[in-house]
Nucleic acid binder design. Structure first.
Lengths: 147, 147
DNA sequence: ATTTTTAACTTGACTAGTCAAGTGATAGTG
DNA sequence: CACTATCACTTGACTAGTCAAGTTAAAAAT
């Protein structure tokens, strides 16, 4: 029994790569006192604000509980505000976060981009994107095989 | 300022996909009372045993501290044994884990494979694998840009 | 043969997340 | 109007990981 279908090899590469690049991204963002997860959340809030926790959780593929905890941390740091609005909590960025993002976004964008620009041609990047899009979309409607 | 280089789009897809498929894998492995992270560690131990914690940490891209905690959990569950051997701790699978892996491995392999087999041709999978291998290898020697 | 150094591992304090049970406010229903 | 759903969010107990300071045992140096 060997771990050797092409699919399983791709799976492993993807896991190791995302793990690796996530760690590097964390290291990179340390200069702004942010983590990758926090940056991800702030980007979404910035783009879609004002929005509810449910909507946000959906966008970053995290559970209700996860987003609740994350927002508590971000609120403590003064990056976001939650106001009870009807029976929902509406999230938006503070000025502090808005200013920070203005500065961080182009840098983080360049950082992410460099993982691919350094080794793949434009054509290859398009291919990779197209393939991953198909795989990702498929995974979203996939079902766990029954026991 | 938009989040729109091809590279950044690929990055996002990869993150969301691995996140998604990791969650699904956890759900799948629940029937064996395992998590994806535990399965990953057990596979490595099975393949390379006996090995030290340092070696294992390297293989699964986790810190020394992380592997120490993970192994403490796996030991408590009776899946692995650590014996102090010289100044190193040597890790190997218990019979219980060996038997479990015999059963789980083919199923998990099929599960991972299905993420790709369902939507990509053999040719496309080879392309994806080749592209990701290059990107991954590059990331391993990449350096964090200076402040 | 003691002392220092070093290598391998552990641990405390933290981020990040899960699941499932618990709150709290609003919306319907009798 | 009180009563029960229900929806949005929180929280307790956990896995999984990070970093940096703390052990511990063997190696090297005095």
């Amino acid at each position: 029994m060997r771990n050797n279908t092409i699919g399983s090899l791709i799976w492993l590469r993807l896991m190791r790569f995302t793990n690796q690049s996530n760690q590097m991204s964390n290291e990179f963002l340390k200069r702004f006192d942010l983590t990758t997860a926090q940056f991800d959340v702030l980007i979404q809030v910035r783009t879609y604000q004002p929005l509810t926790q449910m909507e946000l959780a959906e966008k970053v593929t995290v559970t209700q509980g996860g987003i609740s905890r994350m927002l508590a941390r971000l609120e403590k740091e003064g990056y976001i505000v939650r106001k009870q609005d009807w029976k929902t909590k509406t999230i938006s960025l503070t000025d502090k976060a808005e200013a920070l993002m203005e500065q961080v976004m182009p840098e983080q964008l360049a950082f992410q981009t460099s993982f691919f620009d350094d080794v793949l041609s434009e054509e290859e990047q398009k291919t990779l994107y197209a393939l991953m899009s198909r795989v990702h979309k498929h995974s979203e409607k996939k079902e766990i095989p029954p026991e």
